[in-house]
Write a protein that binds this DNA or RNA. Structure first.
Lengths: 205, 205
DNA sequence: GCGTAACCTTACGCACGAGTAGGTAAGGTG
DNA sequence: CACCTTACCTACTCGTGCGTAAGGTTACGC
């Protein structure tokens, strides 16, 4: 209360508080007063350091998104084979979500529903989908399985959606083990992809 | 403009307008004035017929959710075998989303992000997940594949998430064909489930 | 030890939007 | 034609919450 802290520290405290309040209340229902109070500071300080409500929200998004991406990237790097890379990536992803549940809620639920911010997030998501689609494509090319380009993107959306759904579930269930969730997703991907690579398809009757 | 319409007609017009405005702006950013204007009526009429903003939003949710459920149920019914049922259900689902994009956006994006309404939706979603988990379980039991009960729920979340992700993509891409999307999802489910039923699993290194 | 820059506060202006009061007119019913 | 019910409106009140003005206090360099 009586401590005067340097700017960088306060900024992080404010962002922590903002992420929590945004996650709990939603963007509009969250008030700057509540965020300031949760950060243990008065409102004008928030404006002085992080700008308007919109700018604050974007700052939250950027911090959480960057942390997430960097965590996953760092997890993937030391791996060798494709299955190990995938496994490490998924494990990093779900571990991160489990450890930053509020951050995930803001990224996945709040940002997508506010048309003003959805664009930014959709872009990030699209890049992830592109990466996944690229992986599927190279895997199919290597196995000489025929497929149309659009199919990869669609499949990638399905996989990404499945992972997000599991992550979202994880975010709401304190008792679930992130690593276990990652194993489930790995099974889901690996088994399905394996079948796809063998050229199995379903045809409408 | 000068026509005095019976209540039931106006109510539907108001709900149509409300769904559109909620989908475009988000719950909080949508104003009752804008909804009233979009419905070609004055604000007090909206309050007279459909109550407060919260009640109006819930009315939107209920109408859209009911329509969706009934459409899918009606699609599934006339089918015989399990794969035909699944195919008909998916086709009905994606066709509905393609034809009611705004409704989907309200259900999937808006309702989930407002903590006040998320409960209702989460319940509906949980019931769908239960149904899917039940299908998976009976399929595995029939094939004598061993699995823990929790796994079915997790798998169901993954499948439901994949379908939602494809639906969401469809909602934003006017040019996509719902039936084609349903085919992709069917492939995704059928091929993966088939592999699972053969007891294929991935084990961590 | 004193200036000054950074940290922090109380207390407000102001706009916007939910919800309402109170009234008008159209169309049916006796 | 008198009446009542239903559809519909204009014009407000009032709370809430964003953003700010103006001023106080602590640390730190010199």
């Amino acid at each position: 209360m009586l401590k005067r802290l340097p700017r960088v520290v306060r900024e992080q405290q404010m962002l922590d508080a903002a992420v929590k309040v945004f996650a709990d209340r939603g963007f509009h229902a969250a008030s700057m007063d509540e965020i300031a109070e949760a950060a243990g500071i008065s409102k004008p300080m928030v404006y002085a350091y992080l700008g308007t409500k919109d700018e604050l929200f974007i700052a939250c998004l950027q911090r959480e998104a960057t942390r997430l991406m960097e965590t996953v990237a760092a997890g993937v790097l030391p791996a060798a084979g494709p299955d190990e890379q995938l496994w490490n990536g998924l494990r990093s992803f779900f571990t991160f979500v489990g450890a930053h549940r509020d951050g995930w809620r803001v990224l996945y639920r709040q940002a997508r529903s506010e048309p003003h911010f959805a664009g930014e997030l959709a872009g990030m998501r699209a890049r992830i989908v592109e990466v996944v689609a690229g992986l599927l494509e190279s895997a199919c090319a290597a196995a000489a399985v025929p497929a149309r380009p659009g199919d990869f993107v669609a499949m990638a959306y399905a996989y990404v959606g499945a992972a997000e759904s599991l992550a979202d579930w994880l975010a709401d269930h304190e008792e679930e083990d992130p690593e276990h969730t990652a194993t489930r997703m790995m099974n889901f991907v690996w088994v399905g992809a394996d079948a796809l690579l063998q050229g199995k398809v379903w045809r409408q009757p």
